[in-house]
Amino acid sequence: MLAVVVVLFLAVGVSDGVILSKCELKQQLEEGLTLQIPNSADVLAQIVCHVQLTSGFNTSAIKTIPEPQEPRSGPRRGRSPRGNNKGGSSSNESDEDKDEVWTLYGLFQLSDHVVCNSAQSRALNLCRLSCDKLIDDNTSDDIACVQTLINALTYPIPDPETARHIHKMISLIHQPECMTMKATSYFAICQTP
């Protein structure tokens, strides 16, 4: 009996995350984000689509990936930030860049190199929080961090290194499958009768 209680205690203590529904996340984003751009409903659908594809709406999702390559201007071809790029690296990459690994946290799969502080990496810590705050069931700080990223894209970033890391982080969010998403169809299930 004691073993069962210990296992239950450990399971509850380790799993602070929850799985949200598409409609729950939509509502939370509508309440927490300020999108002052044309077609903001469609942008919201694209953000939620990204969450669905990368974290499955799991607030405690964690993944590691090789450091994303510089975002390209122009059409994107064969971009796969989750793939391993050990064999075909370009000559302008340093050995340090090739071995760099990013850990992505939470619903939005935000990087420890850009938005939060973790023990594993040096970080910009743009959102001024510990990475473990992105993997709990409180999504308000996650949404505030997404707002910070959106705001960072709105204003010029004077430091080129900071700008480079922010653009790499944003390139992870642009899922090709989500870029043409329309709110009316994507959120149709969320309409109340």
Rank of each mutant, 00 (worst) to 15 (best):
I47R: 02
Q46L: 10
T34L: 15
T54R: 13
I37C: 08
L25M: 02
H50P: 04
L29N: 04
A41M: 08
L44P: 02
H50A: 15
I47A: 11
Q36K: 15
H50Y: 02
D42K: 04
A41I: 02
P38S: 12
L35N: 04
P38G: 07
G32R: 10
I37N: 07
I47L: 15
L29G: 07
A45P: 00
V51P: 01
I37K: 09
D42G: 09
Q27M: 00
A45D: 06
P38W: 06
G32Q: 09
Q27H: 00
T54E: 12
L35H: 04
H50L: 10
V43N: 05
L44A: 03
V43G: 02
Q36H: 13
Q27V: 00
D42M: 10
E31H: 08
C49M: 09
Q46S: 15
Q28T: 02
P38C: 07
T54I: 05
K26D: 09
Q52R: 15
Q36D: 14
V48N: 05
L25D: 08
T54M: 10
V48T: 13
L53Q: 15
L33G: 05
L44N: 03
E31S: 05
T54S: 11
Q36Y: 12
K26H: 02
Q36N: 15
P38Q: 13
L35M: 12
T54Q: 13
S40A: 12
T34W: 12
Q28H: 03
T34K: 14
E30R: 03
V51R: 04
H50R: 00
P38T: 08
Q28S: 10
Q52Y: 08
N39K: 13
P38V: 05
G32N: 09
I47F: 09
H50G: 15
V48I: 09
T34G: 03
L33Q: 08
Q36A: 12
Q52A: 14
E30S: 04
Q52K: 14
L33N: 06
C49N: 11
G32F: 03
L33E: 07
D42F: 07
E31L: 10
C49T: 14
T34Q: 14
T54D: 09
P38R: 11
E30C: 01
L29E: 09
Q52G: 14
I47Y: 06
L44M: 11
E31A: 08
Q46K: 12
L33S: 05
Q46I: 13
L25I: 04
N39M: 14
Q28Y: 02
S40K: 12
Q46C: 15
L29Y: 10
L25P: 02
V43I: 11
Q36S: 11
I37G: 01
A41W: 03
E31G: 01
L53E: 15
L44Q: 06
A41V: 01
I37S: 03
A41T: 08
L25G: 06
C49A: 13
L29H: 01
Q36C: 08
I47K: 05
E30K: 04
E31N: 10
L33T: 03
Q46V: 12
L29Q: 05
T34R: 13
E30D: 06
L53C: 08
Q27W: 00
L25R: 01
S40E: 11
Q27L: 01
N39P: 01
V43F: 11
K26Y: 01
H50V: 05
A41L: 08
Q46E: 14
G32T: 02
L53R: 15
Q36M: 11
Q28E: 09
L29P: 06
C49H: 08
K26L: 03
Q46N: 13
Q27C: 00
Q46T: 12
S40F: 09
L53Y: 07
